[in-house]
Design a protein around this nucleic acid. Structure first.
Length: 618
RNA sequence: GGGGGCGUGGUGAAGUCUGGAGUUCACGCCGGCCUGUCAAGCCGGAGGUCGCGGGUUCAAAUCCCGUCGCUCCCGCCA
């Protein structure tokens, strides 16, 4: 018998480890049966996926975790079993004993891995009946997601979810293998920790033994893994659950999983090399693709200049072109004003596309929606001239240089934005995605973005740190004297326009750490109060170290072509943080609150009362 | 905190703009027929407070207001 492998129902995806089929209830897995097995007697156990009752002969597609095989009940061969088979319904859990046989001429099913054989049943036993399911398990119709979540245990039986669970397991397995092979130690860190009210909102857990005090759930194991470095664990990793109490997105849950790792005596290149190995192994395990190495690297500044984002999708071109030179002496007010104010004029060549005037004007509206003051569109005519409401403001030379700068051909649509440099980048970056981004994830484009700035400017002009305060700056001095241009030793891994994770070289010198706190505006007193224990730890001989954290949910989702990470999380929460299956979050008994020394605020209780009142009134 | 989309028998959709009897389609479910099907087929049947509340109207799935749920996005996510 061919080794049984886990795979999506009836549709093998990629290889997994063989599992033991033989148990108290069965001796064989359905999905592994092949022609060579003809003649053997097998005992199978699984679910009745489909039943085709011909009145006499009954066919049952029996599904287990390995796949599907057709079981045939024949009244002339096994009258009792056939009588019982007439009573079967979908998703009954059954056990079948029978003989594997090659299917009669012309009845093979090429759609099934087991399609050349069938099991002629001798006996059938119903292990468990099933009510009519609340939705279809086949893939023909999209079921509303709330309903899928309420019955997630049924949703997980669907091929899509089975395949996603498998992919996730394979991805994590590949990660573990790379980590173990390279000598990383898997170490667990606590999930009840001290709150550090910065960055994302903490999830808080009240302490019963210390009423009025709270733990926080970790947003990441950041400080603990640095303590492990100080503790002499030179290579650490963990599949770590992280919690951030912020609003949901398609690629964000409040509870998510990272591959967290860190190395002592490491610099940036050690981290990136490890990341490449992990990504290559995971991609091979999930998609069967051998990725070329090394991955491309872009600095943050390059990424922003060429793609308008720090997480560029480099599966397609349409790069942003700087036109400051072309319009250095322009008389077109909109461009001249932007350049004079230190801003930029840039554009993208959206390529040859037939766009009606209304569609082009739609792009102008879209650009305004994205925050630009406006958008100039130009269409390259067959003779190389430009058609646009704006051409009358542009000199002959500017028009010629413009076409040259874009390397534009007849039919091409050119889109120009002039504004503050960061706004120009953001708007063009978004337009580029909307006009050119491939829809699926067939092709995979990994890259590293390096040299992130230490600070960024908010809309209001304030300087705010881009990373956590343990990130090593390239130069403390530059951080102090030229904060706008200071670079930190931080880097991201990007796949198809999504940030898979980020990491940095950490500060290992307590003097540097104190200086960075100070520059970030954290007073020595505040630093001592919040991170005193950590600052002290740094003083006892801290090795230089660096690390990273990969978002496993995002990575698996992209590899599986899923738009939403909920599809690769077995039991996710809805956008409002609820679990329709178990009813979390929920109110608790008064005595539980009393144990914790906690009162619900009057206005909340008032809202509860009103809600209850409405219910009783109806 | 803000903006958009969706909510119609068990499931998925059409109907909503332009008000006129719970109308339609596919799947499922129940009953019957059927001995080689594989999205089995054929015949028959049951099943809905159009998310909920209020309003406009002779009349509301349809228009208006509110609310709940799901979802996408902005803000937020060091």
């Amino acid at each position: 018998m061919t080794p049984t492998r886990w795979h999506a129902t009836g549709n093998p995806t990629s290889p997994g480890a063989p599992i033991m089929a033989s148990t108290e209830y069965r001796d064989t897995h359905a999905g592994g049966l092949r022609r060579e097995d003809a003649g053997t007697v097998v005992r199978l156990a699984g679910w009745a996926e489909r039943i085709r009752d011909q009145g006499g002969v009954v066919f049952v597609d029996l599904r287990d975790a390995s796949g599907i095989v057709q079981v045939v009940f024949r009244p002339d061969v096994a009258p009792e079993a056939t009588d019982a088979a007439h009573e079967l319904k979908r998703e009954y859990c059954v056990r079948v004993e029978g003989t594997v046989q090659e299917r009669p001429e012309g009845t093979a099913n090429p759609e099934l891995a087991t399609g050349r054989v069938e099991v002629e049943a001798r006996t059938v036993e119903v292990l468990s009946t099933a009510d009519t399911l609340p939705f279809h398990l086949d893939e023909r119709t999209e079921v509303e997601e709330g309903r899928r979540l309420k019955y997630r245990y049924l949703d997980l039986r669907r091929p899509r979810m089975t395949a996603n669970l498998l992919a996730r397991s394979q991805a994590v397995g590949a990660m573990r293998r790379v980590m173990e092979e390279r000598g990383f130690l898997e170490v667990e860190t606590p999930t009840l920790i001290a709150s550090t009210p910065e960055g994302a909102r903490d999830f808080l857990v009240p302490s019963r033994l210390r009423p009025g005090q709270f733990y926080a759930l970790p947003q990441s194991p950041q400080l603990f893994k640095q303590l492990l470095m100080i503790g002499g664990v030179e290579r650490y990793y963990q599949i770590a659950r992280c919690y951030r109490d912020e609003d949901f997105r398609a690629d964000r849950q409040v509870e998510f999983t990272q591959l967290d790792f860190e190395g002592a005596f490491w610099g940036q290149d050690d981290v990136l090399a490890t990341l490449e190995e992990i990504s290559v192994a995971v991609t091979k395990a999930v998609r069967g693709i051998d990725l070329p190495r090394p991955f491309p690297r872009l600095t943050y500044a390059e990424a922003l200049a060429r793609y308008g984002t720090d997480k560029p999708d480099i599966r397609f071109g349409m790069e942003i072109v700087d036109l400051g030179g072309v319009f250095a002496a322009t008389e077109f007010q909109a461009f001249a004003t932007a350049l004079a104010a230190g801003g930029a004029v840039r554009g993208i060549n959206a390529g040859a596309r037939q766009m009606a005037r209304s569609a082009l004007d739609g792009l102008v509206a879209r650009a305004r929606e994205l925050g630009a003051g406006g958008l100039v569109w130009l269409v390259v005519e067959a003779d190389g001239s430009l058609r646009s409401p704006t051409t009358k403001y542009l000199s002959e030379a500017e028009q010629t240089d413009l076409v040259a700068a874009f390397g534009a051909s007849p039919g091409d649509v050119l889109l120009l934005v002039a504004d503050r440099t960061d706004k120009v980048a953001a708007v063009l970056g978004q337009l580029r995605l909307e006009l050119g981004q491939p829809s699926g994830h067939e092709e995979l484009a990994y890259l590293f973005v390096t040299d992130f700035p230490v600070f960024e400017r908010t809309e209001g002009g304030d300087l705010v740190p881009l990373h956590h305060p343990f990130t090593s700056p390239v130069s403390v001095e530059a951080m102090r004297t030229d904060p706008d241009n200071a670079i930190s030793k931080a880097y991201d891994l990007v796949l198809n326009g999504s940030e898979l994770g980020s990491g940095s070289v950490r500060i290992h010198d307590p003097v540097v750490q104190a200086a960075v706190f100070e520059i970030l505006g954290i007073s020595p007193e505040a630093a001592a109060r919040r991170f005193g224990w950590f600052l002290e730890a740094l003083r006892y001989g801290t090795p230089p170290h660096a690390g990273f954290a990969i978002g496993i949910d995002r990575m698996v989702a992209i590899l599986q072509g899923e738009r939403n990470i909920r599809e690769v999380i077995p039991f996710p929460k809805t956008q409002t943080g609820a679990d329709p299956l178990t009813g979390s979050p929920s109110r608790v008994e008064d005595y539980q609150l009393s144990d914790l020394g906690i009162d619900i605020r009057p206005e909340v209780r008032q809202a509860w009362a009103e809600e209850a009142g409405e219910e009783t009134a109806t």
